[in-house]
Amino acid sequence: MIEVIKGTLLLSGAVFMLLAAVGVLRLPDLLTRMHATTKAAALGVSLVMVAVALHFAEVAVVARAFGVIVFILMTAPVAAHVIGRAGYFVGSRLWSGTVKDELRPNYDPLTHELKSGLETEANARRRPREDDPD
């Protein structure tokens, strides 16, 4: 029984990783590629690690496998965010099928300022925060 579960987990993890790789190869622009790597690859590694935990079934190993899963799930979105933002601001082009971009008009490439588009009435009553530079 446990062998079957383990095998299923391993295979589905491997398939998800393969899908991530196919996505990185096929998808048309940087941001859509990041969708494939963050989600599919993180899920694939998590499934493989659950299989490892089932295989050894000792407290120390299960704790370590769980640690790897939590670590991957915590860092994958952060890495995607920093790389995606850097790529976007450095000027990698979006795919021609992109329907909407609400970020571009709010971003100033010279000062690197990113507005929220909500400040018109908020600025009037904006009080300086404590950690604002003088």
């Binding site: 391993l10 993890g13 491997a14 990783m17 991530a20 790789a21 990185v24 940087l30 590629r33 990041m34 790597t37 690859a41 993180a42 694939g44 590694v45 493989v48 690690m49 299989a51 490892v52 496998a65 790897v68 991957i72 994958a76 890495a79 790389i83 850097a86 790529g87 450095v90 990698s92």
Partner: peptide, 20 residues
């Protein structure tokens, strides 16, 4: 940035391979 994404995927794949 595209190459960096590929390298990122590399490392995740290697983590999976070591698990197997």
């Amino acid at each position: 940035p595209d190459r960096v994404v590929a390298l990122e995927l590399f490392s995740t794949l290697i983590v999976g391979i070591i698990g197997v």
